[in-house]
Nucleic acid binder design. Structure first.
Length: 259
DNA sequence: ATGGCCGGCGCAGCCGGA
């Protein structure tokens, strides 16, 4: 089973790319972030025509996440628990039949939090705490679980071409990296780091020639429960997608599971 | 050497992103 996460930076602006990519790559489950669409305007018909089920959790203009899948989900949950007043659409979870059991997959878009010290940064940290509590409760189920998405966290120096440029950025501040490490320390496996100790950037800014200079960062991650990690065959970043016409600034990150 | 963008909204620039 092939599962992939991709921040597409606007599903309507990226629809032609998305359809070609789906046909060429045939993923089983796709976690999308930054769809920037309300549910009613998500272009579900052309995606369904390719054989995918579509589940969205969107809002107007910003944010928004979705799950595309070849197999119909048994259950869908929208929104990250822990704050009923949170109106930002950043989390959707699906439960899918797989093998003799299920696989549980979440598509998440963690708040950027810049500038540091702002209300946005405190919202980011509180969201990370909620994600930590959610992951802890899900891990008690002892199921194959994937928490996939745009974490907006650069975990370590190796995950940036120029780490010095990021020292005052919310993506690389010690408190954000500590929150990331605390999440991983629950017993989750960073799929890319499990298979590679090389730089594997997933984002290159549109500005300042970041892509031609390979000035990238690794901020899109798949975290696997022990039950999912045991089934890990392969993980990789699909870097070449960044070179497409009208590319997103993020690229797809894949895992293949023996399930 | 320096600076360099893009999507959404909505029809002009501004907001948000990382």
């Amino acid at each position: 089973m092939k599962i992939v996460t991709w921040n597409i930076n606007g599903v309507k602006a990226r629809l032609d790319n998305l359809l070609v990519w789906l046909e060429q790559n045939q993923p089983d489950i796709v976690c999308l972030q930054e769809i920037k669409s309300v549910d009613e305007q998500f272009p579900r018909v052309p995606i369904e025509t390719l054989g995918y089920h579509v589940e969205t959790h969107g809002q107007k203009s910003f944010n928004g996440v979705a799950l595309l899948s070849r197999i119909s989900p048994e259950e869908i949950n929208r929104g990250l628990p822990g704050d009923a007043t949170d109106k930002q659409a950043r989390f959707i979870e699906g439960v899918y039949p797989a093998g003799k059991g299920i696989v549980r997959v979440a598509s998440l878009y963690l708040p950027n939090g810049n500038p540091a010290g702002s209300d946005k940064y405190s919202y980011r940290l509180s969201w990370m705490k909620r994600l930590h509590d959610f992951a802890a409760s899900r891990l008690c189920l002892e199921e194959p679980l994937l928490l996939a998405g745009d974490y907006n966290v650069i975990p370590a120096d190796i995950d940036a071409k120029n780490p010095d440029e990021w020292v005052k950025d919310a993506l690389f501040l010690p408190s954000a990296r500590e929150a990331w490490q605390s999440l991983v320390n629950l017993g989750l496996t960073d799929a890319i780091r499990a298979v590679s100790s090389e730089p594997d950037y997933t984002f290159w800014d549109y500005q300042a020639g970041a892509w031609p200079k390979n000035n990238g960062i690794r901020i899109d991650h798949l975290l696997l429960s022990p039950e999912a990690s045991d089934m890990l065959i392969h993980a990789f970043v699909q870097k070449e997608i960044r070179g497409w016409e009208k590319a997103s600034d993020h690229v797809p990150v894949w895992v293949e599971l023996d399930i």
